[in-house]
Design a protein around this nucleic acid. Structure first.
Lengths: 204, 204
DNA sequence: TTCTAAAATTGAGTCAATTCTGTTTTTATG
DNA sequence: CATAAAAACAGAATTGACTCAATTTTAGAA
């Protein structure tokens, strides 16, 4: 009942993801041919398309793993934020950015972002939008927490502010992955500088 | 001397762009096959690739036309902005958004954005980044103008503020084109709400 | 006008993602 | 245990973007 089929399925899923992750890293997204992924995972090409709608969805599954890890790490900051608005934001954003290149190369991020705008209704497109929303929500939660702690003015529109901060950070991150030469410390510094304007406006 | 060759070249460029624009609108980006564009433009497939590095670059040429028109329209607002920070920003952003779907469908925008992140070093990728920068620069120019007029505090970091406003607007626009059901008035209202936080912070 | 090198064009060929169709394996049922 | 329906699999066939070697056209010199 618990199913040979179900077990095999989970196993094949895992094998495909592992094979794809390895080949994406080694050869890049374009360089990793579906046939090669199939061979490495010891399934046929047809089977891969049985599990994922297209090549992008395979990358999508890997991206989801990464972002969920980041969301998890962010929880800690929301629970116990630094006692200073600027530092609190910088710490949370720092976690996002520092984790971001752990499993995914810039090239993989570029592909993932491109696919999510190209096919917003594909499984991956929807998942990616959901992840963005979750990140926005976490920033909003941090702001609410800071309001509770009396560090941010009560009359601030937390929802709008959370979106503003996330959208700016996300756009900066997109530009960051587009330039191979761009470095993390500079990215963080640029975002800090932008947020400084907001921090000055919302501090209690 | 001015050249038969040069004239033919310009003519072929024009024919390819016109054919592509028509087919992109009719059949969508993916649906418009290169062979069909070539046939409609009365050139061969090879010739198209002589003029453009890839299919995305053809779309890129169309996007550039549109964005340059928008930049032009924005000039007027920068020169004579409404005498109120919130309205000034809303007017400029309104011009960007209202023009945006004039030549390009949401689907074309999605493709254009996707290509620009996927291939940031292709001619189109670089051009697109340049256009983003020009828009950011125009917002920054508006802020500088408002500072001159005494409507925005002098000690505000105009560069950072311009980026913040552009990045937020751009991200909102990306989400807007990703959802076919999203409407322009709601997009504008959402951005106004976000900018309200900033306006409150920077007003003189 | 005639000739030649450079530039441009052509379209058949290549390559890789995706689809399709027949086969095999698993599960549920009598 | 059969066995038939359902699910999953395999890999050949299709499709469409892009390349490239051969051919044609142009500009300008003789």
């Amino acid at each position: 009942m618990s199913g040979l089929r179900a077990r095999q399925k989970a196993d094949r899923h895992r094998r495909i993801i592992e094979a794809a992750a390895e080949l994406f890293r080694e050869a890049g997204y374009e360089g990793a041919k579906i046939e090669a992924i199939a061979a490495q995972a010891e399934v046929s090409v047809g089977t891969i398309y049985n599990y994922y709608q297209n090549k992008g969805d395979i990358l999508g599954a890997i991206v989801s793993l990464e972002v969920n890890e980041v969301l998890n790490a962010g929880q800690g900051v929301v629970a116990r934020p630094p006692a200073n608005v600027g530092d609190a934001l910088d710490t949370l954003i720092g976690i996002y950015i520092e984790h971001s290149l752990h499993y995914l190369s810039k090239e993989m991020w570029r592909q993932a972002m491109a696919i999510s705008t190209q096919l917003p209704d594909s499984p991956f497109g929807q998942a990616y939008t959901g992840l963005d929303r979750a990140l926005t929500e976490q920033i909003r939660a941090l702001i609410a927490r800071l309001q509770t702690l009396g560090l941010v003015r009560q009359d601030i529109d937390g929802a709008a502010l959370g979106e503003l901060i996330f959208n700016n950070m996300n756009m900066m991150f997109i530009e960051f992955v587009k330039r191979d030469a761009a470095k993390i410390p500079e990215l963080r510094a640029a975002i800090r500088r932008q947020n400084r304007i907001l921090v000055a406006a919302i501090g209690a």
